[in-house]
Design a protein around this nucleic acid. Structure first.
Length: 328
DNA sequence: TGACAGGGGGTGT
DNA sequence: ACACCCCCTGTC
């Protein structure tokens, strides 16, 4: 059995106190697809005061972290001991602690928009992650007509089969199990990172299909080949201003308006990006009377109505609408 | 318990 | 407007 020595939980500086709901929405609400709730030992019990919240296990680039909330709402992290110093440096960037999210949120037009005010009040402290650009592109290329759980499964399989090892230990049982069973149940395997785009360029499309990618396998394969032929293209795109960056992303096969905006919002923190998916379409129809509007029209309305931080507003609307749909 | 529809956070033609 | 893939979810 594989054993990882985890560092003791330590506070992450630079964040306000959070509720478990907001932490879950931030990590597992559709911005990122590499966070998994860890099984709770006291399943079925009401969370008691004085004990930490449930733990999320997640990965990005070469980082692996466990995140939880102390009773008073302080975010705490733990990492594989050998990685802990690296993760301690990488976490603030990932969580975008260099930005004042309270001030950014306060500058949204909630004073003149009662529904937006409701959404902000429902998820206080919600923020936009700053994820690795290439991984964000990969994640959202998988997202077409897929729900979060399914996207997470695809990426887990891809990482297990084609991703490099982050922790320098291999579990022989896991490897033999994988070889013996062509269709293993998806489990969280904290050893493997996502393949990089240069690595993806060497993976046959059929192997991607075997990771449950379906018709998205072609998009990912073609995008990988496109990027392989253009060294530096992705880094240049990340550095470009929002409109130019979006134009370039739209050149990629499988990337349309929505995915381009998601990559720029969740991968580079471009808060002017306003992704319009079916949830936002539904929310804007129900809450703002935009019944029958097309995505491009809703996007234009959103930018005009919510202003230069429209993408942040979008995340609150999104979280609220999903909660309503679940019967929260 | 197990089969069976229905539909899914989009893009390309 | 419809195909593209195929897994998850709810339901019987």
């Amino acid at each position: 059995m594989l054993k990882i020595i985890w560092s003791p939980f330590a506070p992450v500086a630079g964040l306000p106190p959070l509720t478990p709901t907001v932490l879950a929405e931030t990590l597992d609400g559709g911005q990122a697809f590499r966070w998994h709730r860890e099984p709770l030992k006291n399943v079925g019990r009401v969370p008691s005061p004085g004990i930490p919240s449930e733990t999320f296990l997640g990965q990005w680039s070469d980082s692996i972290a466990r995140l939880r909330l102390a009773p008073e709402g302080t975010l705490e992290f733990s990492a594989p001991a050998a990685l802990a110093p690296h993760v301690a440096l990488a976490l603030p960037r990932y969580l975008a602690t260099d930005r004042d999210w309270s001030a950014l949120t306060d500058s949204l037009p909630w004073r003149s928009d009662a529904h937006l005010a409701r959404c902000l009040a429902a998820f206080p402290g919600l923020r936009i992650l700053r994820q690795p650009f290439g991984e964000t592109l990969l994640g959202f290329l998988c997202s077409a007509t897929k729900q979060i759980v399914q996207i997470k499964q695809m990426l887990t399989l891809l990482a297990e089969r084609h991703g490099g090892s982050v922790v320098e230990r291999v579990d022989p049982n896991a490897l033999s199990n994988l070889a013996a069973n062509p269709n293993p149940r998806v489990e969280v395997n904290p050893l493997h990172r996502l393949p990089t785009w240069p690595e993806l360029a060497h993976i046959p499309e059929a192997s991607l299909r075997a990771c449950q990618f379906g018709f998205r396998a072609g998009y990912i394969h073609q995008t990988a080949r496109f990027l392989a032929a253009r060294p530096g293209w992705l880094d240049e795109t990340e550095a470009l201003p929002y409109p130019a960056a979006k134009t370039r992303l739209l050149e990629l096969p499988g990337v349309g308006e929505k995915i381009a905006d998601c990559v720029l919002l969740f991968g580079t923190g471009r808060l002017e990006a306003f992704p319009v998916d079916t949830w936002i379409l539904q929310a804007m129809a129900a809450r703002y009377g935009l019944t029958g509007w097309k995505p491009a029209q809703v996007a234009q309305f959103g930018r005009a109505h919510f202003g230069p931080l429209a993408g942040l507003a979008q995340q609150f609307l999104f979280a609220y609408e999903r909660r309503q749909a679940r019967g929260g």
